[in-house]
Simulated assay, not measured.
Amino acid sequence: MFLDCDLEQAIWTTTEAAEAAGVTPDVIYQWKRRGKLVPVNRRGWPRYRAMDVLRAEQSTRQRAGRTHVAA
């Protein structure tokens, strides 16, 4: 899994971010469009800081009233 790395330094693809957050890649794109996630690169396929992805996931989960990630 992707969570066994240095999360402060890790940069993830959309697919990696989705897997780590327990969502689909479409959700990652939605978070990007809504401004919850900002890619770290300006060109090419978007890459995201791991901590930003996890914070966006936590924020979304708390707003929805969910306290854990569905298995």
Rank of each mutant, 00 (worst) to 15 (best):
R42W: 11
D4I: 06
G35V: 05
P25H: 04
A50H: 00
G44S: 11
D6G: 05
L37W: 10
G35C: 05
Q30N: 11
E16L: 02
D52E: 11
L7H: 00
R47P: 13
I11Q: 15
V69C: 04
P39W: 02
Q30A: 14
V23F: 01
V27R: 05
T14F: 01
W45S: 13
E19N: 11
I11C: 11
P25A: 04
R61N: 10
W45L: 12
A64I: 03
G44D: 08
C5V: 09
A17Y: 01
M51K: 08
K36S: 15
T67P: 03
K36T: 02
D52Y: 00
R66V: 01
K36W: 14
D6T: 02
D52A: 00
S59I: 10
E19I: 13
A21F: 01
A18M: 09
Y48E: 01
L37R: 03
F2H: 02
A17S: 14
N41G: 08
R34W: 13
Q9R: 14
R61P: 02
R66Q: 04
R61M: 07
W31G: 04
T13E: 06
K32L: 15
L54P: 00
G22A: 06
T60N: 15
G44M: 04
Q62E: 14
C5S: 12
R55L: 09
R49V: 06
Q58V: 03
V40P: 03
A64L: 15
A20S: 13
F2G: 05
A21T: 02
A71R: 15
Q58E: 13
A21H: 01
H68M: 12
A20L: 14
T67I: 06
R42P: 04
A56K: 05
R66C: 03
A70V: 15
E57N: 05
R61Q: 14
D26G: 13
P46N: 06
A10K: 01
E19Q: 11
V69F: 06
A56E: 00
T67K: 04
R66M: 05
T60W: 05
L3C: 07
R55M: 09
P46Y: 07
P25N: 12
P25T: 08
A56F: 04
K32F: 12
T60Q: 15
V69G: 03
V23D: 00
I28R: 08
S59F: 03
K36Y: 14
P25G: 09
E16V: 07
A50L: 00
L3M: 11
E57Y: 02
L7E: 02
V53H: 00
A20W: 06
A70G: 11
L7Y: 00
A71E: 13
G44K: 03
T24R: 14
V69P: 03
R49H: 08
T13M: 06
W45N: 11
L37S: 02
P25F: 05
V69M: 05
A18P: 07
Q62S: 14
R61F: 12
R33E: 12
R33L: 06
W12S: 01
T14W: 01
Q30R: 11
M51Y: 07
I11W: 10
L3Q: 08
G22M: 07
P39L: 07
D26Q: 15
A64P: 10
E19D: 10
A18Y: 10
T13D: 05
C5F: 03
T13K: 04
A20K: 07
E16N: 03
D26K: 12
W45H: 15
